[in-house]
C-alpha cells in the first residue's frame, strides 16, 4: 500500500511540473523545470523497481540534458515569443488524443498486478534462467549484455552515429575553408 501511495504522490508532483513546463515562457525556467522533472521521474522509476533505469535517468536526464539545453540557450535566445494566434487547434488535438488513449487504458490490467500478461512469459523466464546460465545476479545486466547483446551493440552504434552527427554540425570549419572564403572576397 505504501508503495502505491509514494507512487501516487510522486506522479502528482510530476503532473504539476509538467503544467509548469507547458506554461512557462522563460526558456531558462523551462530548462530548470525539466531538470526537476528528470529527477522526479528518476524517483518514480525507483519506486517502480527499475533501479538501473533510475540511475541512468538521474545522471543523463538531470545532468547531461540540462547542461546541453543550457549550452544551447547560451548560443541562442533565452525567451520564447508569444504566439500569433491562440493555439486552439493543438489544444483540441492534444485533448482529443488524450481522451482516446484514456478510453483505451480502461481495458488494461490494473497497476501492480502479478498476473497480467506482461509478467507471464519472457520476464519470468529471464529471471529463472539468468543465475543458472550466466551466474550474474543482476538480471538487467545479464539481459542487456548477454541475452540481448546484439541489441545493445545496435544501441551503442546509434549513440556513436548521433555523436558523429553532432560533431559534423557543430565543429568549427577547417582552416582550408576559411582561406577559400577569404579568397572569394
Amino acid at each position: 500500500m505504501s508503495e502505491a501511495l509514494i507512487n501516487t504522490v510522486l506522479l502528482s508532483l510530476l503532473a504539476c511540473i509538467t503544467i509548469g513546463i507547458v506554461r512557462t515562457r522563460n526558456l531558462f525556467g523551462v530548462v530548470v523545470l525539466s531538470g526537476i522533472y528528470s529527477l522526479l521521474i528518476a524517483s518514480v522509476m525507483m519506486v517502480l523497481d527499475a533501479v538501473d533505469v533510475a540511475m541512468t535517468e538521474a545522471s543523463v536526464g538531470a545532468g547531461m540534458s540540462t547542461v546541453l539545453l543550457l549550452g544551447t540557450l547560451y548560443l541562442t535566445k533565452g525567451h520564447e515569443m508569444k504566439a500569433f494566434k491562440p493555439p486552439l487547434l493543438p489544444l483540441f488535438v492534444a485533448i482529443g488524443v488524450g481522451a482516446m488513449l484514456v478510453y483505451g487504458t480502461i481495458d488494461l490490467p490494473p497497476f501492480g498486478a502479478a498476473d497480467q500478461p506482461v509478467n507471464q512469459h519472457v520476464g519470468p523466464d529471464y529471471l529463472a534462467r539468468s543465475k543458472p546460465e550466466t551466474g550474474i545476479p543482476n538480471v538487467v545486466t545479464s539481459v542487456l549484455a548477454s541475452y540481448r547483446g546484439f541489441d545493445t551493440l545496435g544501441e551503442t552504434t546509434v549513440v556513436f552515429t548521433a555523436g558523429i552527427g553532432i560533431l559534423m554540425l557543430l565543429r568549427r570549419r577547417r582552416k582550408k575553408d576559411d582561406t577559400l572564403r577569404e579568397g572569394e572576397k
Partner: peptide
C-alpha cells in the same frame, strides 16, 4: 560492480562524462 548491483557501462560512461563536464 554492475553484475551484482545496479549499474553498468551506460551509467558509468555518463558519470565519467559528468565529471569532465
Amino acid at each position: 560492480h554492475g553484475d551484482f548491483s545496479p549499474g553498468g557501462g551506460f551509467q558509468a560512461g555518463v558519470v565519467i562524462a559528468a565529471a569532465v563536464v
